[in-house]
Design a protein around this nucleic acid. Structure first.
Lengths: 180, 180
DNA sequence: CGAAAGCTTGACAGCGTTCAATACGGGTGG
DNA sequence: CCACCCGTATTGAACGCTGTCAAGCTTTCG
């Protein structure tokens, strides 16, 4: 698990994207400078590709260009949905939404989802979801009290699926997340 | 001015990006479906490019692919910085940051910046910055009271530059935006 | 001129931040 | 093995900001 982030003053940062096995963490540079920091949350094995070599490769092989585009578009899509999460949801809803997203992402990659591993610290979660560490804790407490999640430990979480709150599109998820 | 947004339930939406003359509003589709809605805020003249034609064009001409990548990366960069704005700034700071961003964007394109035009409604601004209409109004009032902006009308704004708060990189801007 | 839509302002409740204190867990050294 | 210590997580209390509801106000358009 990697975190793509933007560094701010005084050691603060905003995590803008989270990368899981199979995702690509390069590509985001223009004019030679990288746009984002990228930091490993867990142990990670990465594969470096020489930029000039890749550039040459693209010319002969259109599929390469297409794959790069696909990756860029996916990252943009993730960020846009994340923007909705941060912009429109309450703290508890953000956390729940994030956990469901993680579960879906794990499941796509064949990683265990019961429980789901949460290797990042509370402060990482806060930097990702745009809230304070304390608020993250409170949100966990709130979800636990409602039996929406179970906490085996601080980094081992089980999601209890509420009827009708399964994985769904974001627009509907938001409608449902109003937790009336 | 166009707004790229994600539609939510009950007519709500999150605007994820704002496009100005020279920006490209396509590209964001995968599997035939568009990822975002795109809506005109002002009158706009657009230029449609046939997708299959473009695909063929890329093969022979590497610059085309590079230009598309450039556009994707720029959009991702905008969204990431916007994410910082929404995730880490208070309502008033968000608005001020947005106005400065607009000024810089206008200035890059040779559009007038004194005053700067604000063709979008308060509700659009709210959907972009992740806050309510009333909060947008309050933020304007607060900025006006501090003489950071002047309101000629609801859509004609002048930015009064505070010493040391000119256009700068986002990391520093955030440091300064703590408005101590 | 009247109506409708958008903008602004006020009051109040609720949520999230802040500051502070406490609990938990892993590791080290005695 | 236990005591201690550190970093991290949780919990508590008070405050401030923002969402909400409601009422005026301005502008636009018929």
């Amino acid at each position: 698990m990697l975190a793509r982030s933007i560094a701010l003053s005084k050691g603060r940062r905003q995590i803008v994207d989270i990368l899981l096995p199979g995702d690509t963490c390069g590509f985001f540079q223009s004019g030679g400078g990288h746009l984002f920091d990228c930091e490993a949350i867990t142990e990670a094995t990465t594969c470096a590709i020489d930029a000039s070599h890749l550039r040459k490769l693209r010319i002969g092989c259109p599929d390469v260009g297409k794959a790069i585009d696909e990756e860029l578009v996916c990252a943009a899509k993730r960020m846009a949905e994340h923007l909705v999460t941060v912009g429109k949801l309450s703290a508890t809803e953000r956390l729940l939404h994030f956990l469901h997203w993680l579960e879906a992402a794990y499941s796509e990659r064949g990683l265990p989802t019961h429980p789901i591993a949460l290797p990042m610290s509370r402060s990482d979660i806060g930097d990702y979801l745009g809230m304070q560490v304390e608020t993250v804790s409170r949100a966990f407490a709130s979800l636990k009290k409602r039996d929406l999640v179970g906490l085996l430990s601080a980094e081992q979480v089980v999601l209890r699926r509420r009827p009708g709150s399964g994985p769904r599109r974001l627009g509907e998820a938001l409608g449902a997340s109003e937790m009336a």
